[in-house]
Structures are given as structure tokens and as C-alpha cells.
Design a protein around this nucleic acid. Structure first.
Length: 700
RNA sequence: GCCAAUGUAGCUCAGUGGUAGAGCAACGGUUUCGUAAACCGUCGGUCGUCGGUUCAAUCCCGACCAUUGGCUCCA
């Protein structure tokens, strides 16, 4: 969102630094070695910062030459020389004055002094070091860098490394600062670990939801005809969507939700009222103009001209009568014609309304007002694609008079939202522009809040159990005082009250959570549930948000026991998030090997041979399963059984039923589970009963 | 949006300044085979789009579109 400011970064204390692991020291040292290599190759290079990060290290550098992966071998070559030279990482403590002076001489992040080429980013870094904290250099060979360390003993301790990518980054992460080239690499103690890391990356790629989704035929993103970030679910992917919807509908029905359905667009007024337009406009698709035809524009232009003429007419007629009534001290700035049109007209209206005006002026004002109203009507109607469902649900709340007896009212909908994510943010199914949201809004009284909020949290935990999601964190996002009126609605007291309320609920329910300030929604605090996919990607899957602001803006009220109207609280919740992200996550979570109830193709019946009686036996099994809504397919073709099995395994079909003469004669089917091999022949009835039970129970 | 890399058949990928190839898939046929692939044949491409350089461009250059990685974790 536009209002977001770059957040001040937490500075690592020296204590934190001493806790750096050996691997982090290796990587941080590798960053220095890389910088040494780069400055040897391009002596004008200016370095900013080069830390160890989760997967390796980077160094930010300003350089005319654009470093590309083609340069990597050259840089790596130089790095190897540095490592072979086995320089000691020597720690030197200096005064601030000394450091500033060396920076000005261009000595920091360099091999020698560079007159006329000061270490400008190091000067900036120096400013961030608090008074009283020692200022240190690390020197390896000729390379000296402003650095708090710690490092490994010698450059030779950087065991195995590889440069990986080049990216861009703003100095200190602030887009107002110069853009630097960020060179990424990774380093390990030895070659074995380095290679294991790259093998791991390769394996992760195999689990990538984009790859598996393609292979299994779950979804497509047709960027040419439909658009980037707008996935379409193929039949097999749609099957997963439907299973998730079924799960949500059952659970929500049991929890007292009622379902609604709303359109995908709404008038501009909706989002002006909700407050989304100022706070959220950049994330919305451009508006749809209802009537943009030439005829309409002509008509509007005609009325506009007449309206302008009427305005001049009113002012000309009124001016002599009102001139001396205008108080020069109170006059606003004159308009572009040097006149006080607004003030004159206002005065003229007053005269007319009091019946003190001459008849020509009365007529002119009447005509002006008529045209003004007509012009208002000729404004093209503007519609927006909905980026969220809440405003529609609010209008459903407003559609009937509500009593406290109706609350809590839980409106649920699988609504499709459209958000204009920036092109660089799009990412497979995980970050898209059309979102199928497992949405609901709970309208309740403050007394009901704790119970409702808890019930929602319980829902999450219930779902996570079904899917075997074990690693997750609840992030409690709160506001920040400086954001009030900008990033957040300006209601300091309500913010405090609601945040306290949510915090209390979290503490009482003993859910472990982390509190993150300055991350709330504009209308209230929220809880995001963060999960990690097996590949290590971090995502916000579910969300649970409190809204104390928007219902008020819509004037939503319920009649309370004391016969007064009160504004309800609203809880926005989406425990399954969106189909897109949730299924993307599930694909990686299960590596495409879905449990039976979710599997796009649950059962495939494979025949051995083509004899009529055998086919009839097999067909009867398919029919029975399909009659029970099992997604069952038949492979009665002439391929050898090995080939049929290979195909079914590749398609990740959950259960394969192999049927040959032997099985038919005994009333059996041979069961084979994907990835688990042959389980042998079992009685037909038993197998079918078990399949149906496993689906019904949503067995893992 | 910004920086970089990538874009060749439905999929995975070769390849070249002189009109493009493999495997799988699809289709046709032969094969009737008990747990991860039996054989033969056929079809399939404006080499992302547009423009430039050239006698000639999929290849060189430029713009655009899309995808991927990064743009948060400070000396």
C-alpha cells in the first residue's frame, strides 16, 4: 500500500553478533572475500553492506559495470586466490574520526586509498553506529572493511562457496536511496555440504507447486488471453477446490454460519464508504466506467457548456447586488479568472432563497440549479471489481433491520476477489490477482466477541489437524501510533480497546503467538496464521481480523435490549485463506500425493485383458464407486499392466484397483496405493466400503 | 514497479547467420501381457511479440510481453 513507509530496521547489537554461528561467520567472511575479488576486478566498486543471510550471503555494491552471472567464474577465480592466500581476518579498533577520515579517502571496502572516490556508503553506515559502541575494521590481505565482525580466523576457513544470483536492492532498503547491485552467494564448511545444499534445492524444485500443478493438470495460467496472476482451475484442480469448499461448508454450517452470494463488482460509493479507496486503491483493479460512449460524452459536454454559461449568467447578474456584502477578509483565494465566483454565487443563492433577488436573477439561479442537478446525473457510473467481500456483506447486514437477538450473525461466502498485485509480486498460485476466498464476516456484540474470536481460532486448529500442518505461528498484528490517520483509521481509543481485547483472548486461550506492531489492517488488528511449506517458503495462509471501523462507516446498527441502536463489531476470517494459496501450499505439502479425500483422481480401475465378463466386472466396480461420488476412472485399454500402472503412478492416482481373471473369479480386487506398492487381493465389498469410509473421514 | 536471467512442438530439452531436431504425450496399427513403460508408423513448430541490421535472422541489436530469482532480516 502506498501509505506504507519503509520501517526502521532493527540493528543487531554486538551481543547478537557474538552469537553468530560458525556457518554465519563463514558466510559473512565469504562476503568480504567476494568484495575483495570484486574490487580487484573493478577498482571503482563502492560497497554498502554484506551480511550473512539465511541461505548464504550477499554484498551490495555500486558499480558502473553491470555484473551478470557471466562474471561469476571470474569473480570466483579471484575469490579462490584470496582463500588460498589464507589471509588472517585482523580486527582493528579505531576512533570515529579515524573511520570517517579513512572513508573520505576511500580506504574502506577497498584495497588501498582511492583519492576522489570516498567510501560513501560506509560513511552512511558509520552514522548508524551508536555513540559509545566501538568502531572496528576487519582487514584481510589489503582489503579493509568497516565491520563489527565476527569472522572466521583466516580466509582459508571459507571452505566451499558459490555465487548464485545478482539482484538489485536499495541502499539501506529505502527506495529514495541509490539502487545497488546485490550479489548473492552461499558458502559452507566444505564441498560436501555445499553440494548437499544444491541437491536439496533441486529436490525442492521437484515439489514446486507450479511444476506439480502442470504435471498433474491442476491449473493453468493463460497469460496471453486471460492475464497474469489469473489462474484457471482444470477439472483435476477444481476437484480439490470443491473438496475444500465442501469441508468449509460442513464445518461452517455446524458452527452456525449462514451462506450468502454477492456480485463481483460494486459502485464507487461502496469503496468510498468502506474506506478502501483511499487506503487500498493501489491494490484494486482500475475502475470500470459504466458508460464511456461518445454519445454519452457529447451529451455531457453539451450540458456542461450550458451549465458554465448559466454560472456566468448568475454571477454577472448577482455581482452588482452582492459585491458590498462580501467581506474581503473572509474571501477565499480568487479563482483563475481573478474572480470570487464561489462566494458570489453563494451570496446570490442566499438572496434568491430569501426572496430578495430580482426576477432575472431568480430565474438564472433556478436554471443553474437545474443544470447542476442534470450534470450530477450525467456522471458516468464507476464500478470496481471487489478486492474483498466485506463491503458486500455489510450491505447484506444493512438489508434488514437487525436486533441483538440476530447476533452473532455469521455470513459466509466463497467469494472471488480481484487484487492488482504488482507484476513483480506474482508467484504461481501463491500470489495471484484473482482470489477465491474462504470468507466470512461475523457481526457480534462486544460481549460475544471473545467467544466468537476463540471459535474462529479453534477452526484454524481443526483444519490444521486435518491437513497435518504442524509448523505455524499466529502473528498478532497491531497498529502504530504514527500510522493513525494515514495507514490506519484515526480512532486511537478504539484501536487500544480492540487490541487489548484480542490480546486478552489470545492469552486466555493459551495460543502461542507473536505480536507484530505496525502491521494491522487499516480497520483493525488482525491475526495472520503463518505456515511454512516443506520447501521452506513462508506464507500467510489464514487470517482473522477485527473490524471496529467499517461497520460504523456503513452506519450498520442493531437494536439492543435497551432499545438503542448500536454498531456491531465485525470479525473477518478466512481460515483456509484462498483456494489459490491454500492449494498451492497443499501441493507442496503433499508433494502432489494427496490423501484419498483430496486426490483429484481417487481411484483408477485397471484391467488385465479384454474379455467381456472381466470388463463387466470392472465396469460394475467403477459404477458403484461413481454412484457414491468417488472420482474413479477406468483404464480398460490394451497396454500391458506394467504400462498402465506406470501411467497411473505418474498421474499420482491415489488407489489403483488391478483386476484380472483371478480376482474376478474370487470376487476380489487387487489394491495398489500410489507410492506404496501392491497390497494384494482383497474382497471387492470390503475394499469399496473402506474407500468410502476413508473419504468420509477425510483420512490423512 | 525496480534489477538480473530466461522464453524453441502439449511437456522436458538439444541446436545453428543459409527455412529446426530428440524423448515423452497425442493419433493409427500390431501386441493380450499379473503390479513403474511391448513394438511399428503418423501428426505436430511464424523458434514469446513487434521492429532494426543483413542478400539472408530462431540465432546479432532494440523495444514490448511473460516467467523465474531478488528487492525484509543493517558496518
Amino acid at each position: 500500500m502506498s501509505a506504507e513507509q519503509p520501517e526502521p530496521k532493527e540493528r543487531k547489537t554486538l551481543d547478537d553478533r557474538q552469537k553468530m554461528t560458525e556457518l554465519e561467520r563463514i558466510r559473512h567472511s565469504a562476503a568480504h572475500v567476494m568484495a575483495t575479488a570484486i574490487v580487484k576486478l573493478w577498482p571503482d566498486a563502492q560497497f554498502a553492506s554484506g551480511p550473512a543471510v539465511e541461505k548464504g550471503f550477499y554484498y551490495d555494491v555500486e558499480l558502473k559495470h553491470r555484473i551478470s552471472p557471466e562474471d561469476f567464474p571470474k569473480i570466483e577465480e579471484e575469490m579462490k586466490k584470496e582463500i588460498k592466500a589464507n589471509h588472517v581476518f585482523e580486527k582493528i579498533t579505531v576512533t570515529r574520526e579515524q573511520a570517517l577520515e579513512d572513508s573520505k579517502k576511500g580506504r574502506l571496502g577497498a584495497l588501498a586509498e582511492r583519492p576522489g572516490n570516498p567510501s560513501k556508503f560506509k560513511i552512511g553506515n558509520l552514522e548508524d553506529i551508536p555513540e559509545g559502541e566501538p568502531i572496528t575494521y576487519y582487514k584481510s590481505g589489503d582489503f579493509i572493511d568497516l565491520c563489527a565482525g565476527p569472522h572466521v580466523m583466516r580466509t582459508g576457513n571459507v571452505g566451499a562457496f558459490r555465487l548464485t544470483t545478482v539482484a538489485s536492492a536499495y541502499y539501506k532498503g529505502d527506495e529514495r536511496n541509490p539502487q545497488l547491485q546485490r550479489i548473492y552467494g552461499t558458502a559452507f564448511k566444505n564441498k560436501t555440504e555445499l553440494e548437499a545444499y544444491f541437491t536439496m534445492i533441486e529436490e525442492a524444485k521437484r515439489r514446486d507447486h507450479r511444476k506439480i500443478g502442470q504435471e498433474m493438470g491442476l491449473f493453468v495460467i493463460d497469460t496471453e488471453f486471460v492475464g497474469p496472476g489469473l489462474p484457471m482451475w482444470l477439472p483435476k484442480g477444481a476437484a480439490i477446490c470443491e473438496e475444500l469448499e465442501k469441508l468449509a461448508k460442513e464445518t461452517e454450517f455446524a458452527a452456525g454460519y449462514v451462506r450468502v452470494k454477492t456480485p463481483h463488482i460494486a459502485k464507487e460509493k461502496m469503496y468510498k464508504t468502506s474506506g478502501h479507496l483511499p487506503y487500498y486503491a493501489e491494490s484494486m483493479f482500475p475502475p470500470l466506467k459504466y458508460d464511456d460512449s461518445d454519445e454519452f460524452k457529447e451529451e455531457r459536454a453539451k450540458v456542461f457548456t450550458a451549465w458554465l454559461n448559466a454560472e456566468v449568467q448568475v454571477e454577472t447578474l448577482a455581482e452588482p447586488f452582492v459585491k458590498d456584502k462580501l467581506n474581503p477578509a473572509l474571501l477565499p483565494k480568487p479563482d483563475h479568472e481573478g474572480k470570487h465566483g464561489d462566494a458570489i454565487r453563494a451570496a446570490a443563492f442566499e438572496l434568491v432563497d430569501k426572496g430578495q433577488a430580482i426576477s432575472e436573477l431568480t430565474t438564472a439561479v433556478a436554471e443553474y440549479r437545474r443544470l447542476d442537478a442534470e450534470l450530477e446525473k450525467l456522471k458516468p457510473e464507476i464500478y470496481y471489481l471487489k478486492a474483498m467481500n466485506c463491503p458486500h456483506h455489510h450491505r447484506i447486514f444493512a438489508a434488514e433491520p437487525r436486533s441483538y437477538r440476530d447476533l452473532p450473525l455469521r455470513l459466509a461466502e466463497y467469494g472471488t476477489n480481484y487484487r492488482y498485485e504488482q507484476s513483480g509480486e506474482l508467484f504461481g498460485l501463491m500470489r495471484v490477482r484473482s482470489l477465491n476466498m474462504n470468507d466470512a464476516h461475523i457481526y457480534c456484540t462486544p460481549e460475544q466477541f471473545a467467544q466468537e474470536f476463540n471459535a474462529v481460532n479453534d477452526l484454524y486448529l481443526k483444519y490444521f489437524k486435518i491437513f497435518g500442518i504442524e509448523k505455524y505461528v499466529m502473528r498478532f498484528s497491531t497498529s502504530a501510533p504514527e500510522g493513525l490517520g494515514k495507514k490506519y483509521v484515526n480512532e486511537p481509543e478504539l484501536w487500544k480497546k480492540t487490541e487489548d481485547m484480542v490480546r486478552q483472548v489470545l492469552i486466555d486461550s493459551k495460543i502461542s503467538y507473536v505480536e507484530v506492531p505496525n502491521e494491522a489492517a487499516f480497520y483493525g488488528p488482525k491475526i495472520d496464521v503463518q505456515v511454512w511449506s516443506v520447501i521452506g517458503r513462508e506464507f500467510t495462509l489464514a487470517t482473522n481480523q477485527v473490524d471496529f471501523a467499517v461497520p460504523k462507516r456503513f452506519g450498520l446498527v442493531y437494536r439492543d435490549k435497551d432499545n438503542t441502536d448500536k454498531t456491531p463489531l465485525c470479525i473477518h476470517r478466512a481460515p483456509l485463506g484462498t483456494h489459490e494459496r491454500f492449494i498451492g501450499f497443499l501441493i507442496e505439502h503433499y508433494a502432489g500425493n494427496f490423501p484419498l479425500w483430496l486426490a483429484p483422481e481417487q481411484v483408477r480401475v485397471l484391467t488385465l485383458g479384454e474379455e467381456e465378463p472381466l470388463l463387466n466386472y470392472a465396469k460394475a466396480i467403477v459404477s458403484e464407486l461413481r454412484a457414491n461420488f468417488v472420482r474413479c476412472e477406468a483404464d480398460f485399454g490394451t497396454d500391458p499392466i506394467k504400462a498402465k500402472i506406470a501411467e497411473a503412478e505418474k498421474a499420482k492416482v491415489h488407489t489403483m484397483l488391478v483386476i484380472g481373471g483371478r480376482d474376478m473369479d474370487a470376487g476380489n480386487v487387487s489394491v495398489r496405493l500410489h507410492g506404496k506398492g501392491n497390497l494384494g487381493a482383497k474382497p471387492k465389498g470390503e475394499v469399496i466400503t473402506d474407500i468410502l469410509a476413508a473419504i468420509k473421514e477425510r483420512r490423512a
